[in-house]
Design a protein around this nucleic acid. Sequence first.
RNA 1: GGGCGCUUAGCUCAGCGGUUAGAGCACUUCCCUUACAAGGAAGGGGUCGCUGGUUCGAUCCCAGCAGCGCCCACCA
Length: 896
Amino acid sequence: MAQQRQKLNTIPKVYDPHQAEERIYKFWMDGGFFRAIIDPSREPFVIILPPTNVTGDLHIGHAMVASIEDALIRWHRMRGEPTLWLPGKDHASIATQVMVERELAEEGLDREQMGRERFLERVRDWVSLYGGRITEQHQRLGVSCDWSRERYTMDEGPSNAVRTTFVNLYKKGLIYRGERLTNWCPRCGTVISDLEVDHQEEQGSLWYLRYPYADGDGYVTVATTRPETFLGDTAVAVNPNDERTKGVIGKSVVLPIIGRRIPIVADEAVDTEFGTGSVKVTPAHDPTDFEIGRRHNLEFVTVLNKDATINENGGPFQGQDRFDARQAIVEEFERQGLLEKVEPHTHSVGHCQRCNTIIEPMVTLQWWMKVGSHEDSQSIAGRAYQAVVDGEIEIVPQRFSKVYMNWMENIRDWCISRQLWWGHRIPVWYCSACHRETVSMEDPTTCEACGSGDIEQDPDVLDTWFSSALWPHSTMGWPEDTEDLAYFYPNSVLETGYDILFFWVARMIMMGLQNTGQIPFRKVYLHGMIRDERGSKMSKTKGNVVNPLELIDQYGADAVRFALTNGITPGNDSRTGARKLEASRNFANKLWNISRYVLQAVDQAADFGPSLPVDLSLEDRWVLSRLDRTVAKVNELLEDFQLGEAQRECHDFLWNEYADWYIEMTKVRLREGGRLSPLPVLIHVLESTLRLLHPFMPFVTEEIWQSLVQRLPDDPSRPPSIMVSPFPISDGSRHDGQAEEEMDLLIDIVTAIRNARSELKVEAGRKVEAIIDAGERKPLVETYIQQVSALAKAHPITVYGNGQPAPTPDRARVAVLGSARVILPVAGVVDLGAERQRIDAERVELEEVLQKLEARLGNGDFVSKAPPAVVEKERARLSEYQARLEKLKERLAEIG
RNA sequence: GGGCGCUUAGCUCAGCGGUUAGAGCACUUCCCUUACAAGGAAGGGGUCGCUGGUUCGAUCCCAGCAGCGCCCACCA
């Protein structure tokens, strides 16, 4: 005995994650449990980790992604499915380049000075530094990725997929080069796609400028938020249906300062409600004007350089920064009496998502992907649209399908070139002799068309999302016909945040279908954004970013994971902070201590059978029934991606049922050493619960599981790790309604006694006498006298019932339960007045409920229209409550 | 301008056409009882945003409104 006690004392009272996590992760890696094995006889479960940007450290959002995906992956792996979770990294073209440029700027350098090659070397250094850190950080979270299949967007395979896609689409005419109005970031020196522009409401001004007529007196007044663009005006437009301006159509005005003569044209795009009804048209610097310019064959005059200074078309303003020029131009108009007025005006201004610089719309020559229309079932967009409309791809939560469709319905060609250095170089060579393009899989040395050797590669790179869009198939080896591609594609679930639905998800669907003819994945699970405890978005500028590693150090990886997925529901934002982390850590510790109890019991037992005995006591049947319901529920919830709810089920069962009631009841049995040992059930439930919780808390469950199985009889069929043991499933055979009902009564009795003790201020250690009038449940209660006594600290307990009613001592505290009464004859302590008040309050409450019930059952419509089961249930409640009310009234009569 | 989401206990959030609406944290009282004080026991606390409608029955479904948040949009 002394020796056994010693054994328990070696298990610390508080779970220490740090001593366990690294060791366990190594054990998993060494065991090769993460590796996906192809088994053609079974359907695989596949998730690709959204490739992590190599721009810096892992943040809390990544940790949530990892927690969710690892939970899903571990769950499926334990269900015996061949499971692949493929990790990856993203070169993150623009994001990485911007960060490296920032670092260079601090050293007083810039990329132009360094030259392309030196700059790229610098970026690669950065990437290898952060890339390694990200892997390490992911591993500390316990992710069960198949590291042997890890991919990087710049690897040979994925790069080859990028090149193949470009060449194929180019040959099909789906990638083309064209001059269009684009979003230009003067800071980054590149175009960005519409999606990369952040619109922010800003308080600006609306300037009313006068353009004099060319043929004499008078002027047209136009309103603008960007007066500097007047330099590029090539028309004034009015609405053809506007009576006010009908007469001026076809006339000309002369631009002040620079003296250009421009026509007044009629175009439906002009809003008669806004400004003056006359619009200055700058086709080279405004999307609407660009269209008007095309319709009316206007001249396109670009007035800005790539760095947003005014170019040679700006006359006296050449060389000035765009905002300085704005100021100067307004002043000049004012000086000439051509500034009519200035009004404050709130409008939304496009900013570069990466560097927050104000975007300048500019006509530039770029590469585009022709995506077509959602209505054209042959087009890239059309097929991607249809896949979701048809339900071939299911988006969870469903409401995002509408968001997706809406975006697809308005999609425009995708600008895929970027004037950056870091990324996949555009595989196009231009011939300076014949000006034709050569596009091929192999780098050419001569022009395809004329054979000239004077060719030069396009200096630009591809949008970083181009390679991401191929990820589900490029990581599997496409365009090669690999075993992985055949088996693991399409992926099962694409799990990511709703913020990149357009950037990434939509494009993967388009490119997956385009390249492979198949959807890239069957389900899309979109999680919400993680916010801080006050509900603010985490951002570096706000300074509320938390480093997951610090949290792991503080609380342990399991607690961090549990906290991040705690209470989350698909597509909804969630908050996390110290409170949630503490609660999760406490839960892990509770599990730890429950296990200490069971392990101690195992260590002290002489022997016990390996499986569940046929002969079970009430609480055994009860806890097995509750476990079974929990198991069924958890599987159901996980199927629906309800991770937060699944966790709650596990938590509640473990804590509120297994620990609070079952374990407490086993204490008597273990001490008394009766006929039925609770040990087999105690072990079975703990072991099952560990497996149930494993996807959410992989480390602590493994740690405990290993200590547990090490104490059990050898079993050659037992898996080496909990992570490859079967996930619990329910066949319903353990459901036991009678056991649940009977346990409920015992729980009610114990609670009633405890409640009375507490209200009567009985000292914690003192035993109280109890009389239980159990009615027809007398035999049950008699059997459990010892447990009730222990749990409620009641002694002696006398049980009445079965036609033999309990005597009620005068000065006693009485609790009326459903079918039983609990009487505590604690003379001298019970204040009859208070007792009367308490019971009367109960009576009033019960009568209210009864009134509602009676009204419901008295309603003919209810009885005839409600489902019979519901009516039956209500009838049962009615009689139960009536009986209880009777007992309450009796008691009231007794005490006068 | 269009669309979406949220509004439930002091806080953070679950839930759901059918018991007297739940959890965690916080709060009150008691307890260091040999699994656990990161714990145990017992409590207090909610007209489920507002107004209508559908229904035998609405916190839940529908409509409108209000507040908050987000997304999309060529608001010169």
